[in-house]
Nucleic acid binder design. Structure first.
Length: 269
DNA sequence: GACAACCTGACC
DNA sequence: GGTCAGGTTGTC
């Protein structure tokens, strides 16, 4: 799915397009995407969209009725604003009808989740409380200190949302390549210098990716349904067998934490 | 820490 | 037919 830059792009898009809009009605097409109960239409109708924000890969849509809708897009979830008369795409599971257009939640694989909660309760939700600091907000010293306590492979540490939230498979691989760290390295054994460098690369890559409106490999689109552009700047992700852009060695792929890791065995030590 | 599960679709 | 996919969670 969408990782931090893609989720940030969607949040920014929706803030631009539907902030201030009023909900007229909701159309629940697939009931199983809801965590907890399905909200009553009456409780949503008339509520205004106060604004959207993000923590890690979770999207919060705050409403004027003291409730919020939390979305997680998982692998193939999409949130797209459409006009009322636009044709409804296959795999659309929820339509939130607004006074101006409508917000549609679409998800081919149906891993995505929607949760209607009281805004004040968000921080107390177990799955939100468990999230580590956001990847764009953690200070360098904190990150370095915390990584040095982990005796697991660095790749699996970066993917762990309880450790740090927002990174996924693409950006972990790209950040490790930029930092010249092998994904199999035990986190606690990596030098402080390399880890400081990793923090800088993480910030740089996530911001550049958001600037390019995210990476579209097969499913991701922004809040208007358009693809991102950062896939054109990937250096190792999805490039197994191709030459390393820095040294020409063959880029390798191996499985860590059940996910493919792409890396240059020569550049990344 | 490895693996299956949750799903559909693309590709070989 | 089998494998793989921007994620997460629950099981041994």
């Amino acid at each position: 799915m969408p990782e931090l830059p893609e989720v940030q792009t969607v949040v920014d898009d929706l803030n631009r397009m539907i902030k201030g809009c009023t909900i007229r009605d909701i159309l629940v097409i697939t009931r199983t995407i809801w965590r907890g109960g399905i909200p009553r239409k009456a409780s949503l109708a008339g509520a205004a969209v106060k604004g959207l924000e993000r923590k890690g890969k979770h999207i919060f849509m705050h409403l004027s009725n003291n409730h919020s809708i939390i979305f997680h897009l998982k692998m193939t979830g999409k949130l797209i604003v459409r006009e009322q008369n636009d044709p409804i795409a296959r795999h659309t599971h929820l339509i939130i009808k607004l006074d101006r257009g409508e917000l549609r939640f679409n998800d081919v694989r149906r891993f995505g989740v929607v949760h209607y909660v009281k805004t004040k309760q968000i921080a107390k939700l177990d799955y939100i409380a468990a999230l580590g600091p956001d990847a764009l907000e953690i200070p360098m010293d904190d990150l370095v200190k915390r990584i040095r306590t982990k005796k697991r492979k660095i790749k699996s540490v970066l993917l762990d949302q309880r450790f740090i939230s927002g990174l996924g498979n693409i950006y972990s691989d790209e950040i490790l390549f930029a930092s010249r760290i092998n994904p199999s390295r035990i986190a606690s054994k990596i030098s402080v210098g390399k880890l400081k460098n990793l923090h800088g690369n993480m910030t740089l890559i996530l911001k550049a990716a958001a600037q390019s409106r995210g990476s579209s490999i097969s499913d991701y689109v922004d809040g208007s349904g358009n693809v991102g552009g950062f896939q054109n700047y990937h250096k190792v992700y999805g490039k197994a067998g191709r030459p390393c852009p820095d040294c020409g060695s063959r880029i390798m792929k191996l499985v860590i934490s059940g996910r493919s890791s792409h890396y240059c065995p020569r550049c990344q030590r």
